[in-house]
Simulated assay, not measured.
Amino acid sequence: MRRVPPRTLLPQAACAAALLAAVTGCGLLPGGDAGAAGPALSEPVGVTAQAGSATTVHVMWNRPVSTTEVTGYEVFRGSVRVKELTAQQHMVDVSGLRATSRYVFTVRARGKDGALGPASRRVSVTTPAAVAADGHAPDRPGGLRGRVDGGRAVSLSWRKASDDRGVVSYDVYQGTTKIHSVGGTRTRALLTGLRPGTAYTFRVRARDAADNVSAASDPVRLTTARGPDEGAGTAPQGFRATTRRADKAYYIDLAWTAPQTGGDVPAYQVYLDGKQATTVMWGESAPKDKATYSFYIGETAGARHRVRIRGQLPDGTWGAFSPERTVTTGQ
């Protein structure tokens, strides 16, 4: 049976009636057909774009969540297709760009019939300023450390690398393959989607605006835990839930700190009394640190509710749940 996903709401547009419908079991999108065939090709998830230099951008994504066969991907800069890739490739460097320019990228999957699926979420990035002739690569990052976070994630941290013109990005390698990039102001990364009970070797390289790349850091070797545990480090931190009364009705106010993933957390799922009530989408305006969200819960005093949340990680998967909080209206 194909389940239709809960409705998705923007934080500023979440209305009381919509959430109340979700709470009472009617929060499914209209038009769902329980007897329909398997899912159609969906959009790639977890799309990110990171400036690698003044003229290059590194685009990464994860495969669509649908089970339909994917035969390839197409990467678009605005409405222009700039790359065609095989189904096994989930990252690419787009070069030949202009310095200090904003670009918007999307990715579409291609099915076995040759047709393209829907576009991914739009991700924007601004390339840094160009630099004069620069043949000096950054010093290699030092102090690389790693921590296993459950069976599917590891957290890496390192010391800031020095460069005469400034570091633009850090590239994370698994063996000899680049698997992740973060901005030059970041010195940590959360790598998800790993296999449980598996040994990995990671290194980090620094890159400047002229595309000079440092020597690799010393390696760090980590073995993920056995089992499917997502890892506590992927959960929202400091999660709090309180109630308040306004306009003769009650609301639940949520507050938390975004998990430190090395990238944006563009969406959060809110679970109320054990069931998903809504998905809060921020997209490009995702909070970097503190986040808040409020929703209508009803007009009855003394009603007791349980609430918890989880965030969407940069690779498109969902992280671990926050601790569950219990609130009572009117208290």
Rank of each mutant, 00 (worst) to 15 (best):
R110I: 02
R110P: 07
R110D: 00
G111H: 02
K112R: 14
K112W: 06
K112V: 13
K112L: 10
D113F: 11
G114F: 11
A115Q: 14
L116P: 03
G117R: 00
G117M: 04
P118W: 01
P118M: 07
S120N: 11
S120Y: 02
R121C: 04
R122Q: 15
R122D: 15
R122W: 11
V123Y: 02
V123W: 00
S124N: 05
S124A: 14
T126D: 08
T126K: 15
T127P: 12
P128I: 08
P128Q: 06
A129M: 11
A130E: 04
A130L: 06
V131F: 13
V131I: 15
A132N: 13
A133H: 10
D134N: 15
D134C: 12
D134I: 09
G135N: 12
A137K: 11
P138K: 08
D139C: 13
R140P: 09
R140K: 10
P141G: 01
P141Q: 03
P141H: 01
G142T: 13
G143L: 00
G143P: 05
G143C: 01
L144V: 11
L144F: 07
L144W: 09
R145P: 03
G146P: 03
G146H: 02
R147A: 06
R147D: 02
R147W: 03
V148I: 08
G151M: 12
R152T: 09
R152Q: 10
A153Q: 14
V154Y: 05
S155H: 09
L156W: 11
L156S: 12
S157F: 07
R159N: 12
R159P: 00
K160W: 11
A161W: 04
S162Y: 13
S162F: 12
D163W: 06
D164W: 10
R165D: 15
G166R: 13
V167G: 11
Y170G: 01
Y173I: 04
Y173E: 08
Q174K: 06
Q174I: 04
Q174E: 15
T176E: 05
T176R: 07
T176L: 05
T176K: 02
T176W: 05
T177H: 01
T177N: 05
K178G: 02
I179G: 00
I179L: 01
H180L: 15
V182M: 07
V182G: 09
V182C: 07
G183Q: 08
G184Q: 05
T185Y: 13
T187I: 03
T187S: 04
A189Q: 03
L191N: 00
L191F: 00
L191M: 02
T192E: 05
T192S: 10
G193T: 09
R195V: 09
R195N: 10
P196E: 00
G197A: 06
A199T: 14
A199K: 15
Y200T: 03
T201H: 02
R203E: 07
R203P: 06
V204N: 04
